[in-house]
Design a protein around this nucleic acid. Structure first.
Lengths: 138, 138
DNA sequence: GTATAAATAGAAATAACTTCTATTTATGGA
DNA sequence: TCCATAAATAGAAGTTATTTCTATTTATAC
């Protein structure tokens, strides 16, 4: 938890109660959330609480490396905790389609210096969806 | 071109002028397009032409395997030609960020029978963005 | 404490996409 | 070649997620 708040400050962002609460949601919940879901949970803690603020904070948290955006083929934004400790070691995410848990995949065939089919690679995105050990048992 | 129209019919879809024109756009343009972009080009060919029809047709073309959806981190849908001949051989896409050209990547470390970190893999998505040979020269 | 810029709520606006209804059209069979 | 049918269509209206705007509040550095 501490670690994430440090990242926020390092990114030049202020440490507000809203932001702390949002980070806590992700740390405790261990799942990925949409802005609306975050808002729903946040409203329980704060009397007055605006959805636009949630959107802005989620993007701020992405900018300073606390969260990562996750692609789903719906029209919503999805965010998950980016738990790569100590900076930007290259990794992707695997998401449990039952409970929403997000884990990391460290090994990845792509790296941005490699060339594929004559393309100079600029960036890449990978996401794996599956059922986690816990949910498989259930 | 012919090949794609066959796929449409095989999928139980009618072969309408709209659909042929849409497929042609992708075949000729060799790039990925948003529904709005498709609509813009289509309006030049057809006097009356509705945007909802474009959305529906693009989804139909995905269903029969002619097009594939491509993820970008904007709020728009993106479609590209799915040029895997003769059925669903597993592949991903590499997109040129300059000209929008889409190519295929055949080798992929992930396959859906494998297990990662205890997860039973259900599906995965990969996209690579780069600059193609042609655009690198320019 | 106080000045400052950043963060905030709430309202209003935007943009992308979807649904609905009536009309038109591709297609397979007579 | 004509006809019946279900599918495809346009255009209008609706929906939903996200963004912008304005005035107010608040974290932080001094």
């Amino acid at each position: 938890m501490e670690h994430y708040l440090v990242k926020l400050k390092e990114g030049g962002f202020k440490l507000t109660p809203r932001r702390q609460a949002i980070v806590e949601l992700f740390v405790d919940g261990k799942s990925h959330l949409t802005p609306e879901e975050v808002w729903g949970k946040l409203k329980k803690q704060f009397d007055r609480c605006g959805l636009p603020g949630v959107y802005r904070n989620l993007e701020s948290l992405v900018k300073c490396g606390v969260l990562t955006r996750i692609q789903q083929f719906d029209r919503k934004k999805h965010y998950g905790l980016c738990s790569a400790l100590h900076g930007a070691s290259h990794h992707h995410h695997i998401t449990c389609i039952k409970c929403g848990k997000v884990d990391e995949i460290k090994d990845c065939a792509i790296n941005d210096t490699k060339k594929i089919k004559g393309y100079k690679i600029v960036s890449h995105f990978m996401q794996v969806n599956g059922v986690c050990a816990g949910c498989s048992k259930g």
